[in-house]
Nucleic acid binder design. Structure first.
Lengths: 340, 340
DNA sequence: TTGAAAGCGCTAACAC
DNA sequence: GTGTTAGCGCTTTCAA
C-alpha cells in the first residue's frame, strides 16, 4: 500500500507537483480554480505531506530543540507550556528531550537535536560537558540557556541568580530571628547547589556558619523525600529552629512529617521552600517560599529565539536576569492577609 | 557556511559515500581500516548526519508519536517516563504532542504526527473526533489507546475501567458507614466523568442517590482547586460526611482547606482521592486513594508497539485491563500499619 | 499564475 | 568488503 505523495495529488488534480506544493504553503499564489481542484484531490486521497522530504528540500526544519532535566518537576512543565505557546503559535515544532540531570545525557540530547537540524536550542541550565559546549558554539544557531545565569553564556541567557535566591531565603529566616537553620535537599543539581551556596554565605555573614545542618540524599525532589528527610533529621537528633528546603515539594513533605510528629509549624520549626508552587499559598500553614519565574522564562526564551531567527544579524551575547521574590507566609511565622 | 555532508566525509576519507553511511549504521560491515579512516574524517569535520535525509531515503523514521492531554498532571509525566525508557532504549525517537484535553487539538496532533510519518501512535484516551478516528484507522500503523478501556478500540487498548474505579472509591466510603457523600472535581474530562458515573451508580445502588453533592468548576485539577472547591462547598452550606475527589491533588487541597477551617479529617469529614500519587501516603492524615498503574500503562504500550512493529502480521484488536486498587488510609478512618 | 528541471542528503538494490 | 546507480518526496530556481 504505497503512501500518497504530492505527485499523486498533482496527477489527480491535473496540475504540476509544484502547484500542489504552492497550494499547501502559499495558497494566495495560486488561482482559486486550481486551488479548489487541488484541495479536492488532497481530500479525496487523504494526502498528508511528508515533512522529512519538505525539510530536506527546503533545508528548513521549523523545529526548535528544548532540553530539560525531567518532566516530573512541575516547574519544567510550566516552562515548557510557555515555550510551546509561543513557538507552536509561530509555526514551529518543539522537540523536547530529557537530560535526566546528567551532563552526559544532555550532550547526547544535543547531538540528537543537531541531527534533527533544529533551528535553535533552548536548554535548561548552564553547565555542560566540554564537547556539548563546543557543539553548541559551533552549531551556529541561536542557543538560549535558562534558569541560571552563566558567567560565560554561549549565546543568550535568561535566568536568575540561584545563589542570591538561596541567600535571600536564608536571610529571611535569619531576619525572623532564627539562628539554628538547616538546609534540606535531595539531589544537589547545579541549581540546588547554588542555593546551598547562598545559604552558606548568608549563614557565614550572620556569623552562624557553625550551626548549619545539611541533610542530603541522592533522590529527586518530591513530597515523599521531604517527609523522609525531616524524619531522618529528627531521628538523628537534629532539631533546628528553621529549615530552608530546596523546593516546595520537599517543604510540603517536611511540613506533613512535622504534623505527624507533633512538631508545630512555625512555632517549633519554621519552614521556607523554593519556587512558590501553586499549592504553597493554600497549604496549612501557608508556605513561605521564593517565587521564581518559570513561565516568563519560557516565554521570553521562545520570543528571543524567534527574534534571532528573524534577524540575520548575529546578536551580541546577552543576559537577562528575571529575578525572584521572597514570599513570606505563615510557615515562617508571618501573618498573611486573607486573599483568594 | 555550508553544512558538512556525508559526501564531504567520504571525500576526506577517500571512500565512497555509501561506505560512510555503512560506518554509521552497520559498522561491522566495513573493514576496520576504512572504518577508522571514516571515523577520523567524521571527527575532523564535526559531521552530524541529516536525519531528514536519512528518513526520506530509507522511508523509516524511527519515530513514535505520543499524545497526552497535558504535562501538568504528574500521571502523564510518569506514563511518558515509562514510554521513553522502552522506546528510546529500542532506538526510537518519541514525539510528544499535547491535546490540552481538546478533541480538536487531538485531531491536529494526529495530523502533525502523521506528517512526521511516525511509525506508531500512542494516545491517552479513547474519545476522538470522527476525523481523528478515521485518520487513525486508515493510517495503517499500530495505534495504542491508553488510560481507559474503549467499547470499540481502534487497534490496541491498554487501560482500566474508570467508572468501576469511581464506583469502588464511593463504595469504600459507603462501606465505612458514610451516606452523605460528595464528589469533587474541576474539569470533567472523559475519565473524570466516568469516575463520576461510577460514583452515581454506587450511590444509586446503596439507595443514596438523593444525597449526592457535586461541585464542578472549569479548572484543571490542582491542589489550589481542591482548596477552592472545599471552601465553595462549605460556604454554600453543604456539609457532607465524606468526599470523593477526582484526584489526589484536589483531595490534598480539600484536606488543607479543612485544616484551615478547623474541620477534622476524617472525624468531621472523610476524604478519598484518586491515582495514589507519591505524596498521598505521607500526607497527614495519610490519604486514602485509588491506585492506578500509569507506569505500567506506558511500559506496556511501548512494548506492544515494538512488538507490532517487529511482526508483519496484523494483530487482532486487543484490550488489556490493568485494573486499580483501593488504598485505604487514615483520611477515611482506616488505621494504617506503619511502613516506610 | 503556472511549470520544467535540478537537487536537498541520504540509502536501497544491485553489481563487482 | 566496497562502489555505482537511482531514487526517496519535496522545494528551489528559473523560465514562460
Amino acid at each position: 500500500m504505497r503512501r500518497i505523495t504530492l505527485d499523486d495529488v498533482a496527477n489527480l488534480a491535473g496540475v504540476s507537483p509544484i502547484t500542489v506544493s504552492r497550494v499547501l504553503r502559499k495558497p494566495d499564489a495560486v488561482s482559486e480554480a486550481l486551488r479548489r481542484r487541488v484541495n479536492a484531490a488532497i481530500q479525496e486521497l487523504g494526502y498528508v505531506p511528508n515533512i522529512a522530504a519538505s525539510r530536506l528540500a527546503s533545508s528548513r526544519t521549523h523545529a526548535i530543540g528544548v532540553i530539560v532535566p525531567t518532566l516530573y518537576n512541575v516547574i519544567f512543565a510550566e516552562y515548557l507550556f510557555a515555550l510551546h505557546e509561543v513557538l507552536v503559535g509561530a509555526g514551529f515544532q518543539v522537540i523536547v528531550v530529557n537530560s535526566r540531570y546528567s551532563e552526559q545525557e544532555e550532550e547526547n540530547a544535543i547531538k540528537v537535536l543537531l541531527g534533527q537540524r533544529v533551528e535553535a536550542i533552548i536548554i535548561a541550565g548552564v553547565h555542560h560537558t566540554q564537547l556539548a559546549h563546543q557543539l553548541l558554539t559551533r552549531a551556529h544557531l541561536p542557543v538560549v540557556e535558562t534558569f541560571e545565569l552563566s558567567p560565560d553564556p554561549i549565546d543568550l541567557n535568561i535566568g536568575m541568580l540561584q545563589d542570591r535566591a538561596g541567600q535571600a531565603a536564608t536571610q529571611h529566616l535569619i531576619d525572623r530571628g532564627f539562628s539554628r537553620i538547616a538546609f534540606l535537599a535531595g539531589n544537589l543539581d547545579h541549581r540546588s547547589q547554588s542555593r546551598f551556596d547562598g545559604y552558606r554565605l548568608a549563614m557565614q555573614e550572620a556569623d552562624l556558619e557553625n550551626l548549619e545542618i545539611v541533610t542530603q540524599r541522592p533522590r529527586h525532589s518530591s513530597v515523599a523525600l521531604g517527609s523522609d528527610l525531616l524524619a531522618f533529621m529528627h531521628e538523628r537528633g537534629d532539631h533546628p529552629e528553621a529549615i530552608f528546603c530546596t523546593d516546595d515539594n520537599v517543604a510540603l513533605g517536611a511540613m506533613q512529617e512535622c504534623r505527624k510528629r507533633g512538631i508545630r509549624v512555625p512555632d517549633d520549626i519554621a519552614i521556607i521552600g523554593f519556587h512558590d508552587l501553586e499549592f504553597s499559598a493554600c497549604a496549612s500553614p501557608s508556605l513561605s517560599s521564593i517565587m521564581t519565574r518559570r513561565f516568563e522564562t519560557g516565554k521570553l526564551a521562545a520570543e528571543k529565539v524567534l527574534a534571532a531567527l528573524n534577524s540575520t544579524s548575529r546578536q551580541t551575547p546577552n543576559q537577562i536576569d528575571l529575578g525572584f521574590e521572597v514570599i513570606a507566609r505563615e510557615s515562617t511565622g508571618v501573618t498573611v492577609a486573607v486573599s483568594s
